[in-house]
Amino acid sequence: MNERLMKWAAPIGVGLVVLILWHVLVKAFDVPKFLVPGPLVVLDALIADWGLLFNSLLVTLKITFGAFLLAVVIGTIVAFLFVQSRWVEMSLFPYAVLLQVTPIVAIAPLIIIWVKQPTLALTVCATIIALFPIISNTILGLRSVNPGLINLFRMNKATRWQTLTQLRIPSAAPYFFGGLRISSGLALIGAVVAEFVAGTGGTGAGLAYQILQAGYQINIPRLFAALLMITVTGVLLFLLMVFLSRLALASWHESEVVHET
């Protein structure tokens, strides 16, 4: 059996089965659509409310990508600073962990008060959530250099800069891309969660706002449609990261090499 085909066909098949089952069960038990709308009803809502939902999607995407980019830039810089010396890492890493374990829901209201501009406030919240995997993975990567290669560079009198660019960064790349995968998903989650916390008092434009509104109005099909958009966005984001990582590592790294069997 063609494995590459199966890789796509199998999950899509599962999805179709679930959709059909969903449709059949909703129909069979005559579930009212304000409890569980069938897939076709959701599709209807998606088409009918497309203008509204799509605008919200753009807002959420803007926050997600903004936060993701910020997390990548800040996370990478922090990681590079940390690996410069054990002392820096030892004294600062606990605080990076602190950032990671503090529930964003708890500090989001503060940030929203401090940062006046709503979109920016949400972006900051999402960044905090997305930051940690980039920092920890990049540090791990920059540190897990083959000791033999370090010796080799040292014997060849490589400068610090040469060792960084020609040895540490390429060694860190697979870890960095692993961090990107996790972080991109977290940026989306962060964008949605932050907007929930900000509530209707926020900009009132993102997908989370639409979900809240739809909930108040018991417009469950629209709620499902908004949810669907978030999920699809998450999956696409993940696939984008997989694609980027493959682009960068395919030629050499184990995780991305297509093994012929």
Partner: peptide
């Protein structure tokens, strides 16, 4: 161990000492 850079082709691996110098 051969201690080669897995991300570099043979050509670049062999050239490394010269590149560094």
């Amino acid at each position: 161990d051969a201690t080669l850079m897995p991300w570099a082709r043979v050509q670049r691996n062999v050239r490394l000492p010269l590149d560094l110098a």
